[in-house]
Design a protein around this nucleic acid. Structure first.
Length: 198
DNA sequence: ATGTCGATTTGCT
DNA sequence: GCAAATCGACATA
C-alpha cells in the first residue's frame, strides 16, 4: 500500500528515517515504472549545520522543506548529480530525509538503461546521485507530493528488525562541525545494496 | 557582478 | 587512490 501523507507528517524525523528502511520507493517517470527497497537514508533538520535549511534559512531552494511533510525535495549537487529527499514534519518545521541507496526490484531493465549498465551491479542505485539516475528523478520533480502517481513509497510488509539497522555519521558533511558526528545515517546491516561505509 | 564550493560519481593512473 | 566534471545557490560587494 502507498504510504499516506500522515506517515511523513510525524515529528520524529529519525523515526521516519528508520521506518523508511525496507519500504519501496517507486517512480513512474517517462512512461516507465521503476522501484526498489530502501536500504540507506539520512536525516536532516533545521537545527543541524549540515542541512541546507540550517537556522530556518528560507530560500528558493529550501522553501519546500518548510512545507508539509510528504513532498519531494530534489536538488543539484556538484553541478551534475540530482539528490532526492523527502520532506517530513508539519508545515514550518524544515526536516528532510535523503534517500542514499535502494535495492532494485521493479523495472530493472529501465534502470540499467538509465545507468548505461549492461548488468546489475550493487552500485546501480547506491549513493544518492545513483538512486536518482536509476529512478529517473530530476529537479523538475521538486515539490511533488508523495501520495501522487509520479513518485511514491509503498509498504510491502518487509520487516526490518532493529537488530538489522546500523546507525552511523552521515556522509560528506565534514563542513558541519560537530553536527558531522550525529549518527543520522541509517542502513540495513549486511545489505550489499548500500553505498560504502565512509 | 563575481567568486566559492558543494548531502558525489566516475574513470584513469 | 585521486582528481576532474560542471553549474546553481548563496554570500559578498
Amino acid at each position: 500500500m502507498k504510504l499516506p501523507l500522515s506517515f511523513y507528517e510525524r515529528e520524529d524525523v529519525l523515526q521516519i528515517c528508520r521506518d523508511l528502511l525496507g519500504k519501496y520507493l517507486m517512480t513512474d517517470i517517462d512512461g516507465k515504472v521503476t522501484g526498489g527497497l530502501i536500504t540507506e537514508a539520512e536525516a536532516y533538520t533545521s537545527q543541524d549545520k549540515a542541512c541546507h535549511a540550517f537556522g530556518n534559512k528560507r530560500t528558493n531552494r529550501t522553501q519546500i522543506m518548510f512545507g508539509e511533510g510528504g513532498h519531494a525535495y530534489v536538488y543539484l549537487c556538484y553541478g551534475l548529480h540530482q539528490m532526492f529527499n523527502i520532506v517530513t514534519n508539519r508545515e514550518g518545521e524544515a526536516n528532510a530525509i535523503l534517500i542514499r541507496a535502494i535495492e532494485p526490484k521493479i523495472g530493472i531493465d529501465t534502470m540499467l538503461e538509465r545507468r548505461n549498465m549492461d548488468k546489475v551491479l550493487p552500485r546501480i542505485a547506491a549513493g544518492p546521485g545513483s538512486v536518482c539516475k536509476a529512478l529517473g528523478i530530476r529537479r523538475e520533480h521538486y515539490g511533488l507530493p508523495l501520495d501522487g502517481d509520479t513518485i511514491w513509497i509503498e509498504d510491502r510488509k518487509v520487516i526490518v528488525p532493529d537488530k538489522d539497522i546500523v546507525q552511523s555519521p552521515r556522509v560528506g558533511v565534514d563542513y558541519a562541525g560537530e553536527d558531522a558526528f550525529l549518527p543520522w545515517r541509517f542502513r540495513i546491516k549486511g545489505s550489499i545494496w548500500t553505498s560504502l561505509p565512509k
